[in-house]
Simulated scan of single mutants.
Amino acid sequence: MEIKVRCARCGGTNVRLPEKLKENSIVACQSCGGRGKYGALKAQALTEAEGLFMGKLGELYKH
């Protein structure tokens, strides 16, 4: 299972993270230069992971 974090501005996946991650750390998109907070990016990744997990779990019950 692969989770890609995406830039909220352009949808790109080339996001640069700072060395020391904190909720309010600034992350930067290498594609468009957009900036955001690590906390928001982490929340987006967790939501995507949950969706992937629930999809896989649902596939198990189809059989």
Rank of each mutant, 00 (worst) to 15 (best):
M1L: 07
E2H: 12
E2R: 13
E2C: 14
E2Q: 10
E2I: 08
I3P: 04
I3L: 14
K4T: 10
K4D: 04
R6T: 06
C7M: 03
C7T: 00
A8N: 01
A8F: 01
R9A: 08
G11F: 00
G12V: 05
G12N: 05
T13F: 02
T13P: 06
T13V: 08
T13Q: 10
T13G: 14
N14A: 12
N14S: 10
V15W: 02
V15E: 01
V15R: 02
V15Q: 07
R16M: 08
R16L: 06
L17R: 11
L17Q: 08
P18C: 02
E19S: 07
E19T: 11
K20A: 12
K20W: 15
L21E: 15
L21H: 10
K22L: 10
E23R: 15
E23Y: 08
E23G: 01
V27P: 00
A28Y: 03
A28N: 02
A28E: 15
C29H: 05
Q30S: 11
Q30E: 15
Q30A: 15
S31G: 07
S31W: 06
S31D: 15
S31P: 01
C32R: 05
C32K: 01
G33M: 12
G33T: 14
G34Q: 02
G34W: 06
R35I: 00
R35D: 04
R35Y: 03
R35G: 03
G36S: 05
G36F: 03
G36N: 03
G36P: 00
G36T: 09
G36I: 02
G36V: 00
K37G: 02
K37S: 00
K37C: 03
K37M: 08
Y38K: 04
Y38R: 11
Y38T: 14
Y38S: 13
G39I: 08
G39K: 04
G39W: 01
G39L: 05
A40S: 10
L41V: 13
L41H: 05
L41M: 12
L41E: 04
K42D: 13
A43K: 12
A43Q: 12
A43D: 14
A43F: 04
Q44D: 13
Q44F: 04
Q44H: 07
A45T: 07
A45Q: 08
A45P: 05
T47K: 14
E48V: 11
E48Y: 07
A49M: 11
A49K: 14
E50T: 13
E50G: 13
E50Q: 10
G51F: 10
L52V: 14
F53S: 12
F53I: 09
F53A: 09
M54L: 11
M54C: 15
G55N: 15
G55H: 08
G55F: 15
G55A: 12
L57V: 11
G58E: 10
E59I: 05
L60C: 10
L60P: 03
Y61M: 07
Y61F: 10
Y61N: 15
K62C: 04
K62H: 13
H63N: 11
H63P: 05
H63F: 06
